[in-house]
Simulated assay, not measured.
Amino acid sequence: MKTLLGLLFVLSFMVVACSPSQDKTVSSNPEVTSTPVQAGEQKTQNKLLVVTTVAPLTNIVSNIAGDRLEVKGIIPEGTDSHTFEPRPSDADILSKANLIIANGLHLESPTEKLAKASKPKETKIFELGSNTITQDQWLFDFSFPKEKGDPNPHLWVNPKYAEAYAKLAAQQLTALDPAGKDYYATNLKNYLQRLDALDKATREIVASIPAKNRKLLTYHDSWAYWAREYGFQVIGAIQPSDFKEPSAQDVAKLIDQIRKIGVPAIFGSEVYPSKVEEQIAREAKVKTANTADDELPGKGSANAMENTNPEHTYIGMMANNMRIIASNLGGNPDLVKNLNTGNVVGPTATK
Rank of each mutant, 00 (worst) to 15 (best):
P210D: 09
K275C: 03
A166K: 08
F232A: 06
K148W: 03
C18G: 01
G231N: 10
A224T: 08
I209D: 07
D92R: 14
V37E: 07
S62Y: 06
A102T: 15
V345P: 03
S274C: 07
S19L: 07
Y191D: 06
K189L: 07
Q42K: 13
A170M: 08
A166P: 05
H106Y: 12
N187C: 05
L8P: 00
D80E: 06
G73E: 06
P347V: 05
V26H: 08
P310F: 04
V54C: 04
A248E: 09
P110W: 02
A237W: 01
E127G: 00
V10P: 00
L114A: 09
N213I: 02
K285A: 11
E229M: 05
G342Q: 13
T25D: 08
Y219H: 12
R259M: 03
N328S: 06
G300N: 13
M318T: 08
T134E: 13
T186H: 13
L69W: 12
A326Q: 09
E147S: 14
K244Y: 08
P310D: 03
K116P: 01
D221C: 04
D177E: 11
R87S: 14
V71E: 08
S143V: 00
K200W: 00
G300W: 12
V32E: 08
V71W: 10
S12F: 00
E163H: 07
W156P: 02
T53I: 05
Y161D: 11
A175I: 06
K200A: 14
E127W: 06
L139Q: 15
V344W: 03
L4M: 11
N307A: 11
E127R: 13
D196A: 14
G104K: 09
K121E: 15
N190Q: 14
N152A: 05
K47C: 06
M14C: 12
V50T: 04
W226R: 03
L173V: 08
W156V: 08
N320W: 11
H82D: 11
I238N: 12
T288H: 06
Y272D: 10
L198G: 06
T341F: 07
I258G: 02
A289G: 03
N190H: 07
N307Q: 13
K124M: 11
N321L: 02
G40P: 00
A224G: 14
K146Q: 15
G6V: 00
H154T: 10
P159T: 02
V51P: 12
I93T: 15
E283Q: 13
E31A: 12
P30N: 09
M322G: 05
S28L: 12
V286S: 04
N59Q: 10
D136L: 03
H220Q: 05
